[in-house]
Simulated scan of single mutants.
Amino acid sequence: MASKKSILRKIQIVITKHFDTPEDAFNFFDKSGDGKLSKKEISRLLKEAEINGFIRGIVTSKLIEGYDKDGDGYISWKEFKVAVNEISKKTK
């Protein structure tokens, strides 16, 4: 099973290598355009990061659990920025 650090590194690679800014990444994965990432949209980001199906479901839930500060079940742009900053620090 992939380690937390390797999963975070894969997420960081997708965000930094394929997009000019974290906001571009957020907007790309926010397919509904509602300013929030749903479980399905976060799962799509993880799929791009080559996180396999079984782990992807667990990681999606853990990301929402860890970064959804307002408790609405989604990741807002503000919450996404916090996550990206923490991921950047943890993968150095």
Rank of each mutant, 00 (worst) to 15 (best):
A2H: 01
A2Q: 04
S3P: 01
K4I: 09
I7N: 00
L8Y: 15
R9G: 11
I11G: 00
Q12E: 06
Q12D: 06
I13R: 15
I13H: 15
I13W: 08
V14L: 06
V14R: 02
I15W: 04
I15L: 10
T16V: 07
K17P: 00
H18L: 13
F19A: 14
D20V: 03
T21Y: 08
T21F: 09
P22A: 03
P22S: 08
D24H: 10
A25N: 13
F26I: 07
F29W: 11
K31C: 09
K31M: 13
K31T: 15
S32H: 01
S32E: 01
G33E: 13
G33Y: 14
G35I: 10
G35A: 02
K36P: 01
K36Q: 05
L37K: 02
L37S: 12
E41Q: 09
E41I: 02
I42H: 03
I42R: 08
S43V: 03
S43T: 06
R44P: 00
R44F: 09
L45G: 09
K47Y: 06
K47T: 13
K47F: 13
A49S: 14
A49M: 11
E50D: 10
E50M: 08
I51S: 01
I51V: 15
N52Y: 09
N52W: 05
G53F: 02
F54Y: 15
I55S: 06
R56G: 00
G57I: 06
I58H: 08
V59C: 01
V59I: 15
V59E: 01
V59T: 12
V59A: 02
V59P: 02
S61V: 13
K62F: 05
L63Y: 01
I64E: 00
I64Y: 05
G66H: 04
Y67T: 03
Y67R: 13
D70N: 14
D70E: 11
D70A: 07
G71W: 04
G71Y: 11
D72T: 08
D72I: 05
D72Q: 11
Y74A: 00
I75H: 13
I75S: 11
W77C: 00
F80R: 08
K81C: 12
A83M: 14
N85I: 06
E86S: 06
E86F: 04
K89W: 03
K89I: 13
K90M: 11
T91F: 09
T91S: 03
